[in-house]
């Protein structure tokens, strides 16, 4: 496959987050979609969204408090309550959670893009392998145990680290850095810097 120039690549990498926001009203965050799927698998669908007015909600809470603590305790607690300051900021209104299907669709679409790219270049071929001589120069011929371990362990570090850092190359690297978010500037410097150091160290060990 003939690779794009950095000019074309940069234009694409800028266009995708902008189009993503236009399409969904959300900041592009690929690792966040993994997180949404994992949380669904760990926790199940969760409580259905309740749609109550403020009065209905406080009446329901009061009834629950009466049931749990008794009328005397609730009355005593009410005397201790400080009034809510009137200048308290309203709760932030974020974009509502996307349905699970949207996360699955987006992740599948990324894979479909790779499939189209390879197919249109005329070099789509499925094999239990990674393309490229460098991969095997480092980890040995074929899918040997070392190569398998490198992908499983490396992939696990990617999943663990991106969730811990709260973002990956898209959310922190592209979107966060271009908005000068401090966490993104730090995370992106660290993961690119450590990627360089790790690669130089492994190349030195193999050579």
């Amino acid at each position: 496959m003939e690779y794009w120039t950095a000019m074309a690549g940069g234009a694409l990498l800028a266009a995708v987050p902008l189009l993503h926001r236009a399409a969904s009203g959300r900041s592009l965050a690929v690792s966040g979609r993994y997180t949404a799927l994992v949380d669904r698998a760990l926790d199940g669908p969760g409580e259905p969204d309740v749609d109550l007015s403020e009065d209905e909600m406080s009446a329901a809470l009061e009834a629950m408090a009466l049931e749990a603590f008794g009328a005397d305790a609730v009355a005593a607690a009410a005397l201790d309550t400080e009034p809510v300051p009137s200048d308290m900021p309203a709760a932030p209104v974020g974009a509502p959670r996307q349905p699970l299907a949207m996360h699955v669709l987006f992740l599948l679409a990324i894979g479909l893009g790779g499939l189209l790219s390879a197919a249109l270049a005329g070099d789509w071929a499925a094999a239990f392998d990674l393309h490229g001589a460098g991969f095997h120069a480092r980890y040995g011929a074929g899918m040997n145990p070392l190569a398998i371990a490198a992908l499983v362990v490396g992939g696990s570090l990617v999943g663990f680290g991106t969730r811990m850092a709260g973002g990956c190359t898209s959310g922190h690297g592209l979107c966060g850095v271009s908005r000068f978010e401090r966490g993104s500037l730090v995370a992106t410097s660290v993961f690119f810097g450590v990627g360089v150091l790790t690669t130089l160290a492994l190349d030195w060990m193999v050579s």
Binding site: G154, G161, G166, T188, G193, V196, T198
Partner: peptide, 11 residues
């Protein structure tokens, strides 16, 4: 997190 991700990406 960035450190672990960097190692994983390189590997």
């Amino acid at each position: 997190g960035g450190l672990l991700f960097g190692v994983g990406w390189a590997v």
